[in-house]
Design a protein around this nucleic acid. Structure first.
Lengths: 141, 141
DNA sequence: GTGCCTGCAAATGTTTTGCAAACCT
DNA sequence: AGGTTTGCAAAACATTTGCAGGCAC
């Protein structure tokens, strides 16, 4: 059994994720910590995020083609990323998808999990586009 | 309308994807081409893969936490990645998941797409583990 | 001949790692 | 004291980009 020590840095990283309302990236977590504790290094933030994920205290949200985000909510749920501003948010699917691994023809694979990442446009960016397009500008395609 | 020229390199990249039985990464495509055409550069492989994806000739398969894979099969389908050897394979889901974007409570997001990536263990790695564990070794947890 | 495409090297962005010093228990 | 953790810098990894020369049309 590996010993785990309590350090200020570990506490700060944990706190930063717990306090966040969105789903911050390692970079954003680093930026928020450095305001109060300017000597912390980015490597330490990454190391502690990995420890917290391993211990099941926080969730790693991988998105396609960008940095990982982190989530204080452990309960199983899905995520959506805005394709304009890259923000990640939780998503509830109703009714539950109920993907049964046994109904999957997996070519002999033993399926243990799946992840769904939705892509869309967030309310803020929808609104910004509505404003912009009324003056003839096309913000995205 | 942007002109598109026919080049040997473009042809080689296209061919390499079409000939593959698995779902190669850019690196693997580069490795296979360089055997017959040793002067091609990796940047050219990446550039041509991007062009082929843009033109809808091949599919980019993004997996979580690793390099992109490429797929000659355009028909919509899902993918599974072996968490041991990282191999990607096609997967058929029956019945169709039928995720309706309108039944999703998306917190005001306009949902336009989703991707599902399954994770599991491929037949080859299952077999290898069976052999190893009979002699007391644990290959993975 | 125009200008897209290539090869090379360097840059980018994200994350990990080697190492010596500092810290926790 | 002994082993962990930190901070820093450098490496690792996947991919993109700037540029000068080459090739397609």
């Amino acid at each position: 059994m590996k010993e785990t020590r309590k350090t200020i840095q570990k506490e700060l990283v944990h706190e930063a994720v717990m306090v966040s309302c969105d789903h911050p990236t390692a970079e954003q977590i680093y930026d928020s910590i450095i305001l109060k504790h300017p000597t912390i290094s980015k490597a330490t933030v990454y190391r502690n995020l990995n420890l917290l994920v391993e211990d099941g205290i926080i969730l790693r949200v991988r998105v396609l083609g960008g940095p990982d985000h982190f989530d204080k909510t452990i309960r199983p749920h899905y995520h959506i990323q805005c394709r304009v501003c890259k923000r990640v948010d939780d998503i509830e699917v109703s009714p539950d998808l109920g993907i049964q691994t046994k109904i999957i023809n997996a070519k002999g694979f033993e399926v243990d999990s799946y992840e769904i990442v939705f892509t869309g446009i967030c309310p803020d960016c929808l609104e910004k586009n509505a404003a912009k397009s009324s003056e003839g500008a096309q913000v995205w395609n």
